[in-house]
Amino acid sequence: MLTFLMTRTAESRARFYRVEVAYNLFGEYSVVREWGPKGRGGQHLLVWFSNLRDACMAAERWRKRAMRRGYVTEGTTV
């Protein structure tokens, strides 16, 4: 499982953005994106991929997009 955790503090509102790649029980890979105000439940979106390469490429694309929006990488877990 690969997880990127990013945070952003703007206008005194702390926010988080998380991207996670995981293997599921059906032999597919899923990418979970979760975002919202820090300290509260946020929104999430789950996308399935048939192979690990496509899942990692999508996760990296979403991570870069979040960084362009001002999020800073707080931690990465492998």
Score class of each variant (00 low, 15 high):
38 K>L: 15
61 R>E: 07
48 W>H: 10
40 R>H: 07
65 R>L: 12
73 T>N: 06
14 A>I: 11
9 T>R: 15
54 D>N: 01
57 M>D: 15
69 R>W: 13
31 V>H: 00
59 A>C: 04
62 W>N: 02
7 T>A: 09
48 W>K: 15
57 M>N: 12
28 E>G: 06
33 R>A: 13
28 E>F: 07
44 H>C: 10
75 G>R: 08
65 R>I: 07
29 Y>K: 00
36 G>H: 03
72 V>F: 04
10 A>R: 13
32 V>E: 15
10 A>M: 11
50 S>Y: 10
15 R>A: 07
56 C>V: 11
70 G>N: 05
23 Y>L: 09
55 A>W: 00
38 K>T: 12
19 V>D: 02
2 L>Q: 12
75 G>W: 09
20 E>F: 05
65 R>S: 11
33 R>E: 12
77 T>I: 11
19 V>H: 03
21 V>W: 00
25 L>S: 13
34 E>M: 13
29 Y>R: 00
30 S>N: 14
40 R>P: 03
78 V>P: 11
2 L>P: 04
32 V>Q: 10
34 E>G: 08
10 A>Q: 15
8 R>F: 05
3 T>M: 09
10 A>S: 10
36 G>Q: 01
15 R>P: 02
77 T>Y: 11
51 N>T: 07
66 A>E: 01
3 T>R: 11
70 G>C: 05
62 W>I: 01
24 N>L: 01
39 G>I: 01
41 G>C: 05
69 R>M: 09
26 F>N: 12
46 L>E: 14
33 R>T: 10
34 E>S: 15
50 S>W: 12
2 L>S: 01
40 R>T: 09
23 Y>D: 05
42 G>W: 01
56 C>T: 14
68 R>P: 10
50 S>H: 09
4 F>Y: 10
60 E>N: 10
15 R>S: 14
14 A>F: 08
46 L>K: 06
51 N>L: 02
66 A>C: 02
77 T>E: 08
76 T>Q: 09
75 G>Q: 06
8 R>T: 03
12 S>W: 14
2 L>A: 05
17 Y>K: 01
15 R>M: 11
35 W>S: 05
71 Y>M: 03
37 P>N: 13
3 T>K: 14
74 E>F: 08
2 L>V: 05
25 L>K: 09
26 F>A: 07
68 R>C: 08
24 N>Y: 00
34 E>Y: 08
4 F>G: 04
58 A>D: 10
60 E>Q: 06
39 G>E: 04
34 E>R: 13
74 E>V: 09
55 A>F: 00
6 M>G: 07
13 R>H: 10
32 V>H: 10
37 P>S: 14
35 W>E: 04
58 A>R: 09
27 G>Y: 01
49 F>Y: 06
